[in-house]
Design a protein around this nucleic acid. Sequence first.
DNA 1: TAATATTGTATCAATATAATATAATACTAG
DNA 2: CTAGTATTATATTATATTGATACAATATTA
Lengths: 267, 267
Amino acid sequence: MMEKQEGYNAAVFADRIPKSLQENAVDCVILGYDEGELKVLLLKWKYEDIWSLPGGYIKITEDLDAAAYRVLQERTGLTSIFLEQFKTFGAALRQTKKYPVDYAKISRILDKIPLKNKECNLKWITKRFLTTGYFALVNLEAANPTPGFLSERCEWVSINAVPQLLMDHNVILKTALEYLKKQLNYLPIGKSLLPEKFTMQDLQKLYEVIIDQPLVRSNFQRKILKLGILDRQEKLMTGASNKAPYLYSFNTEKYDEVVKKGIGFSF
Amino acid sequence: MMEKQEGYNAAVFADRIPKSLQENAVDCVILGYDEGELKVLLLKWKYEDIWSLPGGYIKITEDLDAAAYRVLQERTGLTSIFLEQFKTFGAALRQTKKYPVDYAKISRILDKIPLKNKECNLKWITKRFLTTGYFALVNLEAANPTPGFLSERCEWVSINAVPQLLMDHNVILKTALEYLKKQLNYLPIGKSLLPEKFTMQDLQKLYEVIIDQPLVRSNFQRKILKLGILDRQEKLMTGASNKAPYLYSFNTEKYDEVVKKGIGFSF
DNA sequence: TAATATTGTATCAATATAATATAATACTAG
DNA sequence: CTAGTATTATATTATATTGATACAATATTA
């Protein structure tokens, strides 16, 4: 089962694995919205050029959802946020043929980070495991990106500039974005992506970034307003030489109601 | 962690567990449609009054999806069917407080079925694990329900007459049905649930059973026909004293196209 | 041949949608 | 102060969709 790679014997890892942890993981696609761009929170590993989605093992006494919340909280400081499971990934070759793990790199990293830390279960290096993908939409301004013990940086990266990620993380990210695109047509979004108050243009741009195509302004406004999830606030004086737009905020009560009912077509 | 229950020490199971299998499982909600009822395929266990969804462990060299297909194939003989992952379940208390496992019953069963069979991994008795829920829509007529080595019966049960199931299987079933209900509004269904040729009434009844509410006949017909996924065939002479309905069949090409595009509302 | 049940399609008002137009700003330049 | 400019909020219009109902066309039975 194990094979040598670049002179490194992966089986060495097997000894380092604490037995106390579950063999399953979660990976979080944490999306924020900033300067008209959709951004995803990524980790840059220590010492080597490895990037990955924030993830973690599920503790044996922990709910699956709780593990995802924990990862989100550890990497952003945020709690009680929109977080949704979207798919579990379990291709047999997650760590091998299809998405090769560079054992040499991992080896060099581990040589520098002794694994006395019980929180680190590196079974994924040597054995296929499942990971459940979650995605979160968060207020980028409120988040406080924090690297873990294997990573040296935790950064917002534009979804148009995502580097090659560890294992199948690029696929996980892509799947999350497609899922979000679909969700748009039967769920309101934006409550946690936008600041408290925002203009109609802000909201439209968010939608356009997600579905990756332009929308007709007047029709977008009409459709959104008809959902009844927005409260109109005062006008925003930008200093620009044009009519000042209204500010809006989400009406939490109605927003949640629409989330429950769903929008759009139904038989 | 382990506790005695009805005088039986669950830890005894731990020794019986082969190490060769992954600790994750799939459970399949296999739905069929018969006599105007939606039915789910359930297993009745040997010797004791235990019912469950068909499920199985994921082999260490097996794709997650492949494991679900295998379960479906083993229990129905069917292959290449609509089968979709809908959610992974991982509540910490899956096997304990919230959904107690009756160790006494399991014990009695295992006393009669010696576990020399390597295919049986009963770790789920002693330890929390994740299970990924899949649902399949199959042609009930074409399926050949077949029990496994732990079960004595494999039967179609009306979703209105489902007994108490093992662990959280009732929740898994409920979640699958809710998921299907939602899917209805942006995917065509019926291709694998109905026979080759069917009447408009057949299709409407199927929809009504799934969403659990009546639909207006003329409007349903108009909406469905507009999707362009049906080919009209000859008339069906039933011998009933009324106008004979047309038979329809799904146009596979257009059907798949619509599955890809989705139907209904979009921004 | 009339009665009956069910089907296929038409009708029509109400509503929704896409594309475009118009009026109302908030500021700038002169 | 006024005209110009960019942008916003909303109106308009033609077209399409929806929900509710109506009605003609069968296939059989009485």
